[in-house]
Amino acid sequence: MDKKVYNKKGKEELKKTLTPTQFEVSQENSTERSFDNEYWNNSEEGIYVDINSGEPLFTSLDKFDSGCGWPSFTKPVVEEHVKENKDVTHGMIRTEVRSKYGDSHLGHLFNDGPSEKGGLRYCINSAALKFIPTNKLKEQGYEEYLELFKK
C-alpha cells in the first residue's frame, strides 16, 4: 500500500519542532503519564503516524480501550513500519516497538490484547504520534488510506 519515502529528522531539528514530552518519549525512550496524554481516549476515525517521519503506524479501526491509559492497537497499519526490540529495562523483559524510518520509541507490545483480533496489544505513547483524521487524509498526503474507512 505505502510506497512513500520517510526520513528521520535530526535531533536538533526535533528539539525545535517537538514539545519536551514528545522529544523525551520518542527520542529518549521515555513514557508519558497514563490517562494524561492526547490520544488515549480519542475515538475519531483516522490514522496515527510517527511524529518524526510521518510514516503511517496505526489506524483508529484497530484501536481499542485496554484500560491502561495509553492508546492501544491490535496491529500496525503497515507492518514493516513497526520494529520490535527486546527491552530489559526497569527489571522487566518486554518488547519495545519503534518506527522503522523515524526510529522513534513508540511504546511496547504485549500479548494481552483481544483474542478475537490476534491477542496483541500495541501500547503506544501519544507523544510519539500525530493523528490525522479521515477528513484530512487527502490534504496531508495520505489519501491511499481513505479506502480503509469506506463502509
Rank of each mutant, 00 (worst) to 15 (best):
I132D: 03
I47C: 07
S60F: 09
P56L: 07
E80V: 00
T74I: 09
W40D: 07
Y101G: 05
C123N: 07
L137I: 06
G67I: 02
L129Q: 06
N135P: 15
I51F: 02
F73N: 05
Y101R: 03
E116M: 01
H90Y: 15
S115W: 00
M92E: 14
D87I: 09
F58V: 06
A127F: 09
P76V: 07
T89A: 13
G69I: 13
P71H: 08
L137T: 12
G69S: 03
K100I: 02
E80N: 15
K117I: 06
K86Y: 02
E84M: 12
K86W: 03
D62E: 14
S43R: 12
W40I: 10
P133M: 00
V77H: 02
N41G: 04
E45T: 14
N42P: 04
K86A: 10
L129T: 00
F58S: 04
R121P: 03
K83S: 01
S53N: 03
H81K: 05
S104M: 07
E55I: 13
S104W: 09
D65N: 15
L61E: 09
L106G: 09
E116R: 12
V88F: 14
H108C: 04
E55C: 09
E96Y: 07
L57Y: 11
G69V: 12
G54N: 05
T134Y: 01
Y48D: 03
K136R: 13
L106I: 12
E96D: 01
T89R: 13
L57D: 00
L106V: 04
L57A: 07
T95D: 06
L137E: 07
D87Y: 12
Y39S: 06
H105R: 06
D62L: 07
F73I: 01
H90T: 04
Y39L: 12
D103R: 08
G107K: 04
P56T: 10
G46L: 05
R121M: 10
V88L: 12
L120T: 13
E79R: 09
L106A: 11
L61N: 11
Y122F: 15
V97C: 00
G119Y: 09
D87G: 10
S115C: 00
H81C: 01
Y48L: 01
E80S: 15
V78A: 06
T95H: 04
G91N: 02
S66A: 14
E45D: 15
Y122D: 03
I93G: 07
E38G: 11
H81S: 08
R94N: 01
A128N: 10
S66D: 06
M92H: 11
D87L: 03
H105A: 02
H108R: 08
K75H: 11
R94S: 11
R94G: 08
V78F: 09
V78W: 09
I47S: 06
L109V: 15
D50P: 05
K83A: 02
I47L: 01
